[in-house]
Every structure is written in C-alpha cells, then in structure tokens.
C-alpha cells in the first residue's frame, strides 16, 4: 500500500508545485489546496499503515495486547484539514476581493503596493 500512496503524494506535490509557479492567483490557490491534500496523505502514510486492527484497549488492560493501527495520524490530519479548509475559504475571498479591486488576477500586474516607477529617494536638498 505504501508505494501506491507515495506515488500519489508525489503526483499531488508535483501538480501543486506546477500550479504554484503560475502567476495567476486562482491557479496558485488550487496549487495550495492540492499541496495541503498531499501533506495530509503524507502524514497518513508516515503514521504507518495497518489493516483492520482498531486501536481499542480491552477492558482491564493498560496497553493494547497486539499491534494496532496508529490512532494519532487521523487526529493530526483532521487538525490540518480544518486549518487548510479555513485558509482556503479565506484565500478564496481574498483573491476574489483583490480581483475586484485591482482588476487583475495576475500577480505581475498587481503593482499598487510596489509601484513600477517608484520615486528615488532625494539625492540632495
């Protein structure tokens, strides 16, 4: 199972890097979304895969008696999903507002904060 997931993670990462190299906000946004999905799968795989052994400790025991699935990665991934979801929503609104206010979604043409021909500092009185 691991090799398949590794290949999938690689595909997700490379697609997201390709998208993030674009100058258009919407593609970068999709790239970020793909990247966060790739990371979630990465954590999932890093937590080791095991089939059909739920991590439940029998009554009266202190520790599980056999090797069980790792319960931690799903907690980590859930946290990461919540965070990346809220960031995606925020960036979507931000990108939309920026597109409305600046009239472009090409970052090379967004030169309001750093104008193309900025005045030089004065050289003398």
């Amino acid at each position: 199972m691991e090799p398949v997931l590794c290949v999938l993670i690689t595909v997700l990462f490379s697609a997201s890097f390709y998208l993030m190299l674009s100058t258009h906000i919407i593609r970068v946004l999709l790239g970020v979304a793909l990247l966060s999905n790739g990371v979630n799968l990465l954590i999932f795989t890093a937590g080791r895969l095991l089939r059909e052994v739920p991590p439940i400790i029998a009554e009266g025991q202190m520790v599980p008696t056999m090797a069980t699935a790792n319960p931690l990665p799903q907690a980590l991934i859930l946290t990461a999903i919540v965070i990346s979801f809220s960031f995606f929503a925020f960036l979507l609104v931000l990108g939309f507002r920026a597109y409305q206010a600046l009239g472009t979604d090409d970052v090379n043409e967004m030169r309001v904060a750093e104008p193309e021909r900025e005045p030089e500092p004065p050289m003398g009185y």
């Binding site: 809220s86 929503a89 609104v93 939309f96 409305q100």
Partner: peptide, 12 residues
C-alpha cells in the same frame, strides 16, 4: 466563521 464567510460571498 463559516456562515460569515458564506454570507459575505453570497452578498457579493
């Protein structure tokens, strides 16, 4: 949080 984002988008 989600309602406020959704309503902001729908308003526009």
């Amino acid at each position: 949080a989600i309602t406020s984002i959704a309503l902001a988008l729908e308003e526009r």
